[in-house]
Design a protein around this nucleic acid. Structure first.
Lengths: 249, 249
DNA sequence: GCTAGACCATGACGTAACGTAAGGGTCAAG
DNA sequence: CTTGACCCTTACGTTACGTCATGGTCTAGC
């Protein structure tokens, strides 16, 4: 069945003007028009509207939403999973804000003074320039545009978490190597898989094939080699081997 | 010590333009100016900026933020506690959104279709006109402006929760009365106190004095009397008595 | 003292995402 | 046919800054 613009507006709790606007900019075009020129929205249109509204709730601009919903490889499930991850991270961020308020309340109650830089730790986006070399050595890869698009909205705590996760992964690889675990063993391949998922989740879609290509980069590009070998001697080729083995199983 | 506009901007992760704008509209005026005309912000200014940014994070307009921070009775602790409550509720709302995504993912995976009205349940604000009589009978009171201000941003799930809480409280009063518990007993007064906190939390500051005045309204205004007596015969005077007893202990 | 670079000020136009309103056509029930 | 609810397109306004222009201030180094 098809809905008119007023019906959709009431259903979704938004205004007709919003729907006109989304049609006008091509974000959400009705799949049909009546003989009188009325916009007619079908079920697939509603699904797309739902996706738009989830992203909007997360603070994405309409441009960004359109880009995010235009991913060639993405189906509805992919988009929803991505949004779920973003919502989870947003909750975590809000919990950090509550912790910040509790700190401020404690200081207020005790008549002490909160450190100035501590007061604003939970506000503002991450400034990538401050971590440029760290970002590059850990995550540079073939899908730069997508990576930038995803990360442009990460908050400070999200970046810190990504860095910490990555460092844990790197340390895990180093431990495996030091223990003499073969790079094509289950254990090493599990580490490689966790590494691949980390990139896939935080930066860009990373298939096993792409991951293998990345592993080659780790031994051929000095910046990456230096990063990995900083954890253990000759770790870069070990990681590459684990990644390649993982890609082939 | 005092900070210039660039220092504050860096500290807080916002732009100088934002600080100019906030000064221009009177939302956050620097407490000082150098001989050269430079804005100078002190620690109290930073505290206010923190409060502004918390409200901004919650999606309040700048007008709303200014109003919220201009409450005569509010000190810093009060404002922070209010913001904490709002953040908690926002987290709950986001969790509902995640549940909605999980539903959509399940439907997508099973190839079924989500009901159209179910798709948008988590979006949009509450439309007060749809619950006008319910709102009025339960919560009308002396601080209408403040009540409206607070509730104007409540989401559907928040309203539903407020309604459910209120109904639970009303049922509790009815149970007490039916069991023959005196209106000035500890148990009844506890119920009155919970009622007072409910209003204080959700609608407007409600001191014990104000609560007692409200109790008188419940027996004098037919709309309220009808609401309370709908739960048990002659419940309105019972509730009034419990409230008055609570106010006097 | 002069220079250069980083910082500050005010003023003003532009932008994103709608909100509001105007003028007029469509649909369905009475 | 009338009326009321709905639709269309067009267009100006609003909020919260972003960007830019022009020019003054501060400090370190020469």
């Amino acid at each position: 069945m098809a809905y008119t613009v007023g019906e959709v507006a009431r259903l979704a709790g938004i205004t007709k003007r919003t729907l006109h606007h989304y049609d006008g900019i091509g974000l959400l075009r009705p799949s049909g028009r009546s003989a009188a020129g009325y916009r007619l929205y079908d079920h697939r249109d509603l699904e797309r509207l739902q996706e738009v509204l989830f992203f909007r709730e997360l603070g994405f601009s309409l441009d960004e939403i359109e880009e995010a919903l235009t991913d060639p490889g993405d189906d509805r499930g992919e988009a929803l999973r991505r949004q779920r991850g973003l919502l989870m991270r947003r909750i975590e961020h809000l919990q950090l804000m509550i912790a910040a308020i509790d700190k401020a309340l404690k200081a207020d109650k005790e008549g002490t003074t909160m450190a100035d830089n501590d007061m604003f730790e939970v506000f503002g986006d991450f400034d990538p320039k401050r971590y440029e070399s760290e970002v590059e050595a850990r995550w540079s890869g073939p899908a730069l545009d997508e990576s930038k698009r995803r990360t442009s909205r990460y908050k400070k705590d999200e970046w810190r978490r990504a860095i910490a996760e990555m460092d844990d992964l790197s340390k895990a690889f180093a431990q495996l190597k030091l223990r003499g675990v073969p790079a094509d063993s289950d254990e090493a391949m599990e580490a490689a898989e966790r590494h691949r998922l980390h990139i896939d989740t935080w930066f860009y879609p990373c298939s096993r094939e792409m991951h293998a290509g990345l592993g080659e980069m780790y031994v051929q590009d000095e910046r990456f080699t230096a990063y990995w070998n900083g954890f253990a001697e000759d770790l870069a080729p070990y990681v590459r081997d684990a990644i390649v083995a993982n890609a082939q199983r």
